[in-house]
Design a protein around this nucleic acid. Sequence first.
DNA 1: ACGATGATAAACAGCG
DNA 2: TCGCTGTTTATCATCG
Length: 238
Amino acid sequence: MVTADINRARRKRCPAATLHVLTRPGFALNIPPEPAGLLMRVELRLTDLCWYLSARSSSPVSHLAASQCLEGRGLGHWDTSDQDDLTCLNWLHQRGDLLPLQPLTKVTPLPRQQPGQLPPPPPAAAASSKPPYSFSSLIFMAIEDSPQKRLPVKDIYGWIVSNFPYYRTATGGWRNSVRHNLSLSKSFRRIQRDKSQSVGKGSLWCVCPEYRLALLEGLRKTHSYHGSSSCLINKPVL
DNA sequence: ACGATGATAAACAGCG
DNA sequence: TCGCTGTTTATCATCG
């Protein structure tokens, strides 16, 4: 595992599109425009980076070349615009063990919401219909989408509401279901917050590593059943 | 018909 | 006291 920080890479003119891929081990993620000075640390397996770069070029890429890429050197060969298929996860699919999902097409970046700003209205059907995902899947996606891979219940609610308009207007019973799922499911584990630093109530919740694949499989099945147009499967988080 | 799974509702205790 | 969080139990629906 190698670690780099985004600001350092950006100073070295590391292409944003490359950073896009580097931010998540095994996953692609759009990097939001973070506030100036905010240092984001990123981690990835060097092997995964090699796979990505090899997929982008016609020849295999060594670990050395990949690590040079992380340092912002040797990028010219792979330089590409943000608009091309860097957001495509096919290279992960080729990798096989990283992306147990259906072959993916271009990933649609999530519009970034500003505090207090309402998101753009979703299509009527999407807004009014209940998502096909189980609560376990929703919780899983929310936690996986967090930088620390752990979230308090309140933030899990927030993630679901942000990503599924249905729950903006749904009655409060679904929150009960979320808590019910967290408590009952073996897939999720409660972590005590650091009392010295934490502000707010409750614990943090994370995904048990041994159940992660099962959760991914559940998502994949949902996706297969409902077709590739399902909104979530094309999200950067997955 | 049956079991597994998931959704929903509700009651209750603990905590800030 | 109040609201949130977490646990537990019960019931119902759906699916294989």
